[in-house]
Amino acid sequence: MPDIVQNPFAIEPGTVQRGLTRVRALSAGEVVADAAVPLLVWEYSYAPRYFFSPGHVRARLRPAGPGKPSRVLGRSELFDVVLGDRVLAGAAQRYPEAPVEGMRGSYTLTWSAMDTWLEEDEVIHFHARSPYVRVDTLHSSRHVRVVVRGEVVADSHRPVVLTETGLAPRYYLPRVDVRMDLLSPTDAVSYCPYKGTARFRALTVGGVRVPDVVWGYETPLREAAGVTGLVCFWPEKSADVEVYVDGERIGQP
């Protein structure tokens, strides 16, 4: 009998396919690239990169020398992105020896060099979105209990279970079921192109402070709207944080 597949949706590095939605990259309000059908290229399995044909690049590209080679895509060439008097140094790349011939003349843009990325008319956060990632939020009656150093800090029979392709389920709890007096905001923030912006909290029990072990989404993206205002514990971050679901401990470091 074959082994049970843990993640059947891992994309093989080097995979190239045409996208299905319009993607635009902007800098200071100027369109740098605009493609109804960009290329999606997986240099790594967790997320693709957008590649644009020369006709989809609105800015002038100026050769800027060799770039860092890719184990999957081969050698790279850097280009400055020129927008009038502004220059985004080395913000475009081309891989002229890529294994897929159709992408050799296309350009990818450094994500952080652009201030806005749009899929159709919705802002994309953090990195390109994969068409194979799905996010669901499900109301549940499972019993979720969080214990830290022997003290119960959360106890709920009404979690919302968030599932995301390739990742472990996460249990989001109503604040009325959580000892919010033990939590304090931190400066930590994370960005997800599927869920939105998460803000973190520290947990202090018995004089011991565990930073950034709780997070939540105040204004999540549409796919994660079901966890708006709820909080989630991160048991993999600290052995002190014990999360039990129906009596079974999950997510140990």
Rank of each mutant, 00 (worst) to 15 (best):
L167A: 13
A113I: 01
V213E: 03
V243D: 02
V160G: 04
Y172Q: 07
V214R: 08
E122I: 07
D80L: 04
G84Y: 12
R75C: 00
G74T: 08
P99T: 06
Y194R: 11
H139T: 08
T116L: 15
A28W: 02
L40G: 08
L203G: 04
F79V: 04
F51N: 08
S70P: 12
A89R: 14
E43T: 13
C192T: 11
V31H: 11
V23H: 10
M114G: 01
T21K: 15
R62D: 13
T110R: 09
R249S: 02
G67I: 11
R142S: 09
S76W: 06
H139I: 00
M180G: 10
R249T: 04
P69K: 13
T163Y: 02
I124W: 02
R58C: 13
P253M: 09
L118Y: 06
L162G: 03
V23I: 15
A224C: 07
V148I: 06
D155T: 00
A33P: 02
V208H: 06
Q6S: 14
A198S: 14
E164S: 05
D246T: 01
L40W: 10
A92W: 10
A168E: 15
Y132K: 12
V147N: 01
W117V: 08
P48A: 12
V133E: 08
Q252S: 13
V178G: 05
Y132P: 03
D3M: 11
G55L: 06
T204E: 15
L118M: 14
A91Q: 06
E12W: 00
G196I: 09
V133W: 01
L138P: 00
H143L: 08
T163W: 04
C232W: 09
R170S: 12
S190N: 06
L73V: 06
R158M: 06
